[in-house]
């Protein structure tokens, strides 16, 4: 538990340090909502896996103000994301982008699912197909069909 506790306590302390100030909100509720949606998918780089929406670290506060500023200036969420990744790298996004480096992360679970389904369907097909006779069985069948017993067939 220690690590989790440390993480949560650390976060909780930051939370208590300075809480979101209503005075900083954008006047236009629609713009504020767009900014808020971005906060929720932006990593607070100095906290433990929190978004800047949850965190009250000074850096999170600064990032919120920067994002609000850009939204107020009429930038689209896509442009803001591009700005953030140019500045901090992909790490800043809590939802990793679809990129070759992240392909395994996004595709992995679905590949596991497909692999399982493939095995399942393979099983159905095996169960449906009557297995062909093994050479041993074929020999025995041939021996039974001929008048001679199996021993004589070996001549």
């Amino acid at each position: 538990m220690t690590a989790r506790r440390m993480a949560l306590i650390f976060g909780a302390l930051l939370c208590l340090a300075a809480e979101a100030d209503p005075a900083e909100r954008l006047a236009d509720p629609a713009a504020e909502a767009r900014a808020r949606a971005l906060f929720q998918e932006t990593r607070c780089l100095v906290c433990q896996g929190q978004s800047i929406d949850d965190s009250e670290a000074p850096l999170a506060h600064d990032l919120r103000q920067i994002i609000r500023g850009q939204i107020a200036a009429g930038h689209s969420p896509g442009q803001v994301r591009a700005f953030l990744t140019a500045r901090y790298g992909d790490y800043v996004l809590l939802r990793p982008p679809l990129s070759p480096a992240n392909a395994l992360l996004w595709a992995g679970p679905f590949l596991v699912g497909l692999l399982g389904l493939g095995l399942l369907f393979g099983r159905y097909r095996r169960a449906n197909a009557t297995p062909p006779l093994s050479s041993d069985e074929a020999e025995r069948l041939a021996a039974l069909e001929s008048d001679d017993g199996p021993r004589q067939s070996g001549k």
Binding site: Q40, E41, R43, G49, S51, G89, D90, Y91, L94, R95, P96, A101, L104, L105, G108, P109, V112
Partner: peptide, 26 residues
């Protein structure tokens, strides 16, 4: 697999010399 991959992703990236991780949206 999803939870495991997401949890270990920072370690995998770190081993490759990169920084990164996933969060609740993923």
């Amino acid at each position: 697999t999803t939870v495991l991959a997401g949890t270990l992703w920072p370690l995998i990236l770190d081993a490759l010399g990169k920084q990164g991780g996933v969060g609740a949206p993923y």
